[in-house]
Design a protein around this nucleic acid. Structure first.
Lengths: 244, 244
DNA sequence: CGCTCGCATTGATTCAGATCAATGTACGGA
DNA sequence: TCCGTACATTGATCTGAATCAATGCGAGCG
């Protein structure tokens, strides 16, 4: 059951503990015990360390619940050209597609606990429990909305607009409101950010410096970001009228 | 049948006729008559001519069934910067999001018959009929998969790769297999294609000429395209190894 | 506690695609 | 059938981001 890294896992979390997180987040409230058990029986568990791809690319779609940590879903356009399709955080449900026109791989950004299912098995069970498919549909539509927003950014926004949007997005998802602005600890590297925004590391770095110089945010170390001026960032995020 | 001119609609299609198309495509086979009637009662009908945006941007998500014609879903990044998020053809079910970070509008590419629903009403009813939510989920996941593929193209592919992918995609959706290759009648303009691929009209035109010169396809008039060499196009569509 | 390697920043140059600018051509209407 | 206009193609130039190339810095290890 699941590969736990190479050395060993420091925090000891039992399978039932982890499954409980899935269950309270995803299964409907008044869910029958039988359903609970059925899902538990098809669930697979994986503990991954930063950089790991916790499971082999499969010929069937996978549903992955992030019980702990954060991950990125990467599409390989060709060797050396990767596109980060989405980032995920605790409580997220990820739809990992089977290999199609491109190969998709889920990578752990930090130490992760994942619960995963074959999507066909998952949906077969989901049908028995009212509200379950609804939840899945809800989350699929959220993923769709995010993917569309990403497409708009990649298709029509400048490097700076993309980076500004990225920070606002991340703040909404993993930031915490501070007195002056928002603070967050980014689990992904500059290279991940670049691959997510369709840019290079260098461009990300340059644009970040510009935002810093403009007094819109500050950084601490490699991963902490402090947004000082939400509206300033929002106006640089592409809702501007460039000419006129 | 067929549309000649704009004065009035030549083909007379009654509401029940159109709804029947929706029903046979989307509603489950052994669907209860009651469900059928309930959906019919919340369905709204619109007939649109090329270029129309058949309904006002709403504060609620819409579900649109394309009973006839084809459409584009456009996100407005800012005035003068539009991103085509998706194209749709007969039988497709479109999820039109409410105004969020960007404004989304559905435009008719040619004469269209549309059946639309408020998504909340739609899903409330869908819950009564087994298989209905499944169908919606299925289609949402297809839309998600397409949107992700688009993100990969926009983030990591060259102009030529994007255009080649576009033609292969369109052939799969609206092309017909001919003796030598695939033939299709594109309902969208060069400008729509550019806005879909995150390029300019000029770049689309230049890359199209290159593909034409390379003997991979021919064009006839503004909208007919004949793909001569599927594999050649596929290899230019971004599964190439650029260096090495 | 300092070393070191991998990550990040900064700078110089190049290049794919945008922009600006004609010119050509399909197609709907008179 | 011809005409006008909107759409499409082609060409010249410009530019934002990529690429190439050092240099700086921070976190994990000995």
């Amino acid at each position: 059951m699941g590969e736990h890294g190479h050395k060993k896992d420091t925090r000891e979390m039992t399978f039932p503990d982890l499954f409980e997180r899935f269950s309270s987040e995803i299964l409907p409230l008044g869910c029958a015990d039988a359903t609970h058990l059925r899902f538990q029986s098809i669930a697979r568990f994986a503990s991954a360390r930063a950089g790991d791809a916790p499971f082999i690319v499969n010929d069937r779609d996978q549903i992955v619940f992030i019980a702990k940590g954060s991950s990125k879903l990467v599409a390989e356009a060709s060797q050396e050209r990767e596109q980060v399709v989405a980032f995920h955080f605790v409580g997220d449900l990820v739809l990992v597609p089977a290999r199609g026109a491109h190969a998709y791989t889920l990578y752990a950004l930090d130490n992760c606990d994942l619960i995963f299912f074959q999507s066909d098995e998952f949906f077969k069970l989901a049908r028995y429990e009212t509200g379950m498919i609804d939840e899945a549909l809800e989350r699929a539509m959220l993923a769709l909305a995010r993917s569309r927003e990403k497409a708009v950014a990649l298709g029509r926004k400048s490097a700076q607009e993309r980076l500004a949007s990225f920070f606002l997005n991340m703040a909404e998802r993993i930031g915490s409101k501070h007195e002056e602005g928002w603070v967050m600890q980014l689990p992904m590297s500059r290279s991940d950010i670049a691959d997510s925004l369709g840019l290079t590391i260098e461009t990300v770095s340059r644009q970040l410096s510009e935002l810093r110089d403009a007094g819109l945010l500050t950084t601490q170390g490699r991963s902490q970001v402090h947004l000082l001026d939400w509206d300033g960032l929002a106006s640089r995020a592409g809702h501007l009228v460039p000419a006129e």
